[in-house]
Amino acid sequence: MKTIKRRYLALEIDCEKMADSGEFMGAVWDALVRLYGEHGASQTGLGLIHYDSGERYAVIRTGHTALDMVRAALASMTQIRDKPAAVHVLRISGTIKALHKETAR
């Protein structure tokens, strides 16, 4: 069986009032479904790894083949819980360890 390569994305969440992790992921899924449909979204293997509302920081995981889809969906996000928001990708890495090392730098 083919191993699925993963990519980890460190994100910065830019909004006035932070949402909780469930609402944040709901907004990400919404953006994915709006752009690529349920079939496309199902191929991303999206998952939340870490969420820190205080630091406005999150780490998500996706399959490497769906990276472009996820980046486009994140860039298309303008709202989280009906409040204006933007999500910026800080770093992308193949391992969580390397991601933390790079974001700490």
């Binding site: 830019d14 909004c15 752009l35 472009d68 980046r71 486009a72 994140l74 860039a75 298309s76 303008t78 204006p84 928001a85 933007a86 910026h88 990708v89």
Partner: peptide, 23 residues
Amino acid sequence: SEELLMRKPMEMAALASLFDLKQ
């Protein structure tokens, strides 16, 4: 005209994939 709608250059490039512009 609003800061919250500004995106990073690579995010703009990612959005361009929606209309078939290669990376």
